[in-house]
Each structure stands twice: as structure tokens, then as C-alpha cells.
Amino acid sequence: MRSESSRRGRTSTRTWREGSRTARYWDAKLIGWAALSVSLGVITAALVARLVPGLAGALLSALAMWAGVAVVIVIAFRRGRPRGLLRFRSVDLLYAVVFGIALRAVQGWFGMAAGDSGAFPSYPSVDGALPRLWWFTDGVAPVVIAPVLEELLFHGVLLVAVYRIARRGLEGATLALIASTAAFVAVHAVTSGVARWDETVSLTFVGLTCGLLVLLTGRIWGAVLTHVVFNGAWVLLLFVGTLLG
């Protein structure tokens, strides 16, 4: 009886990487819901952007895309909460600073290799002033909202589900990393119009790095914060370039 109780105790504390039953409903059905909801979000966002001009169209388009992603995340966490995935450790902040800045530097090197001048980017101005709601469209949205939603979707829901379906282990981790990175790059290519090779390579590096952080630590927040720092560094460069200009 004692050994049986000990076995149950050990099983109950396993993380999602170790086969915890808390992630048992993050499965192929959830991936199907994710594909459907994100596809509807992408299509709706594209239609709104085409039908509604200007800033209003851009905002509504972004909201449609975020809604499609948010629905998946809500469904996933209603089905289960993989043990360990949402834990936060202070070292996650260190990962974010180191990898976020390194990835932004790599993106800059690839950009220059593709023909960029290497000069600071800057915000476009309208009659000498920044566009309306620039602080949201170019600040809050890419630095706060997008990283949280994207990481929970690609390196939370998708990565964990594929890892479980593939029966864990090195093979499962490899397949989950490839699948989540491919989906991450593909959705950005469709929604952001990524066309240059350096943008594709940079996004691939971001996807691989964030995916590896989740697989190696079992936690999502290192990936989320790395994405935040990566996007935030770009906003900071824009701000500096605008001031210098």
C-alpha cells in the first residue's frame, strides 16, 4: 500500500514534459480547433483590412486576429492546465534579456546582409507629428499583446499538443519544435506580408529559440518575455531613430 501511494504521489507531481495527465486533453482535437479558429481569424482580419480603410481598419483587423488566437487559448485552458507550463522563475527574466537582445542583433545582421543600410528605423510622420494611436499600434500591441497571445498559442498549445501526440522524448521534442516554428513563421508570413529572406530567417530563429526555452525549462514565460524583449528592442530603435531624425 505504501509503495502504491508513493507511486501515485510521484505521478501527481509530474510536469507536462514528464507525462502529467493535466495535459491529456491537449491533443489532436485541440490542434484542429486551433487551426479552425486561427484560420477564421486570419480570413476575417484580411477582409476587415480590405473593407475598412485607415487606422480603424488596421485596429479592427488586429482585433479579429487576436480574437481567433484568444479563442484557442481559452479552449485549451478550459480543457486542462499542463502542470509546470505557467510557472514563473526569476531566471526567465535573464533568459528574456539575453536571448531577446541577441535575436534582435541577429535580425539586424541578417537585414544588413539583405541590403539594409543599418541606420536606425523611424516612425513615419504625418505633417510632422506621429500617427494617431501610435503608442498602441506600434507600442502596446507588438510589445505586450502579440507576444503573450502568440507564445501561448505556438509554444504553449501547439508545442505541448504535438509533444504529447508524438509520445514525448527527443523525437517528440524535435517534431514539436519544427511544427510550432513552422506555424509561427507561416502565420506571420500571411498576416504581416513577410517576403524577404532575412525576415523569414529571423522569424525562424525567434520561433526556434522560444520553442527550445519551453522544451528545456517546461515553462512558457521565458519564451513570452524573450518575445517581449525582441519586439520591444525594435520599438526602442524606432523611438531613437525618430528622435535623431
Rank of each mutant, 00 (worst) to 15 (best):
R132A: 15
V97A: 15
L55N: 04
L85C: 01
L159N: 00
L63F: 14
T174D: 02
V144T: 04
A58V: 05
V38A: 00
A114V: 05
W234G: 15
T191R: 12
T204Y: 06
T209V: 15
L36S: 04
L153A: 06
C210G: 14
S192G: 11
F239D: 11
A113Y: 09
T191I: 03
R167Y: 07
V190H: 03
R17T: 14
T226G: 09
L93P: 04
V240E: 05
A223C: 09
A76P: 04
W109K: 02
E171D: 03
G118E: 01
P121Y: 10
I75M: 10
L238K: 14
A179T: 14
M65K: 03
L60T: 04
L94D: 01
R89E: 15
V140Q: 04
L133G: 05
I101Q: 02
H155L: 09
L177F: 09
P53E: 01
A119T: 13
D27I: 09
G9A: 15
S5R: 13
S90F: 13
R168D: 07
S202T: 13
G172N: 07
G9M: 12
F205A: 15
L170H: 12
W26I: 06
L236Y: 13
L60I: 13
K29D: 10
T174H: 02
G115R: 07
P82T: 10
K29Y: 09
S39C: 11
S117D: 06
T204Q: 04
F110M: 15
G193W: 09
R87L: 12
S39K: 03
R8Y: 06
N231I: 06
L30M: 03
G80Y: 10
S61W: 08
V72Q: 01
F154C: 13
R132P: 11
F230D: 03
Y25M: 11
F110C: 02
V52C: 04
S39F: 14
Y123Q: 03
F239C: 01
A186P: 00
L47I: 12
N231R: 07
Y95H: 14
A176D: 08
E171S: 14
A28I: 09
V160Y: 02
G68S: 03
I43R: 01
G118C: 08
R78E: 01
F154E: 01
V240Y: 10
F136R: 07
V214T: 12
R104H: 11
F154R: 00
I73R: 05
